[in-house]
Amino acid sequence: MDSTDIRPVTGAAVPVGSRTAADGGEAFVHYLDLTSTLRFFQRYKERSYSALDLDAAARVLDAGCGVGTDAFALAERIGPDGVVHGVDVDRHLVDEAVARAAAEGWSERARFHLGDVTDLPFPDGSFTACRADRVLVHVAEAGTAVRELARVCRPGGVVFVSDPDYATVVIDAARPELTDTIVRAYAAGLASPYVAHRLPLLFRQAGLRDVTVSADTFVVSDLAVAQQVLELDLMAERAVRSGAVDRRAADGWLEDLGERASRHEFFAAVTGFGVRGRKPGGPSGTGSRREGAQPPSTVPRDPASGGER
């Protein structure tokens, strides 16, 4: 478990796992860029990369790749014979990733595709390692997504998924029961807010073996940082809109947090789980080869995104 002190950053809010590209293209790009600068995220991402057992010729899938930041970091860890393929359901993010790859010289070793993690556009066994970070919390059919990651992973390869668990959100406040109500209302706006603690089961159901679990806890005592990472204002607003609490209670909750911060008494935390599994070895994998599918290196170019599909 990792806890860390994090200094405030400026700009748009940086929720741990709630915001999606649907909330606004440029704002979401800014969110992804900001999270990549926070030490907590940098540290757990480094550990997640190491868990993939990459070699010089690795073929890696980054599902829910966003603007490509993790794909570029992975490309740095493999040799010139390796390649990272990023997939995202949002065309704006794919376009941005393609543009950044070209600008930063990664186009040959980091390629990006428009696609859905629950229906990946690759044949069985295409990759030596597959990962998804803060993605399945936004996916209603999380079990299908894990099965897809397992399907496109080669026998003997590694699948790694990490997500925040909204059952672990802790915010110290005067009225704990009100805090619990507000957090639950916020979590209800996510597709799979509690998927993180179900991942070990989903991995085993997908046929993955040697399943291990790691935990990383984001601890924050700075209200400004908590606003950016946990979206406290949106928590309160969502609770009001859903009818879980009234406006007076929500405003009082936020005021209490502000008063605690002024006395240097603010505290909040949320834990994320990273789950690693290995696809069984042998000539046969899980699932069957998709009829008519092509290997990632030969998938036709998608003119709309400027990348390969």
Rank of each mutant, 00 (worst) to 15 (best):
D165S: 13
D165G: 11
V94E: 07
A97G: 04
L178A: 09
F112P: 06
H92E: 14
V169N: 08
S192D: 09
R91Y: 02
L93M: 13
V195T: 11
L202W: 02
T69W: 05
R198H: 15
I171W: 05
V60E: 03
R111Y: 10
G68K: 00
R109N: 08
T168H: 03
G157A: 11
W106A: 11
A73G: 14
L149P: 05
A167H: 14
V89R: 12
V183M: 04
L61G: 02
Y194A: 03
R154K: 15
Y186R: 11
E177T: 15
A140D: 14
D88K: 00
V183K: 02
A102Y: 04
L74H: 03
E76L: 13
G86Y: 03
V139D: 01
V158L: 07
R131C: 11
A129H: 01
A188W: 04
T168I: 09
P121L: 11
V146D: 11
D172I: 09
I182P: 08
A73F: 01
G157Y: 10
T179N: 03
D70W: 06
D90K: 00
G156E: 07
A167V: 07
D124Q: 12
D70M: 04
D165C: 12
I78T: 13
T168V: 11
H113L: 03
D90C: 10
H92S: 14
H138D: 07
V195F: 11
A63Y: 06
T144Y: 01
V183R: 00
A110T: 01
D88H: 08
G79A: 11
Y194Q: 09
V139M: 06
T118C: 13
R147D: 12
L74D: 08
A132L: 00
P164R: 01
L120V: 07
H113G: 08
G115H: 02
P200H: 12
A99C: 04
A102M: 04
A191F: 09
R131G: 02
P123C: 12
P121S: 01
G115W: 10
D124C: 12
P155I: 06
I78V: 15
G86C: 03
D95S: 12
R134D: 05
V183D: 03
V161T: 03
A75M: 07
A71E: 00
G82Y: 05
A99I: 05
A142K: 10
G82V: 00
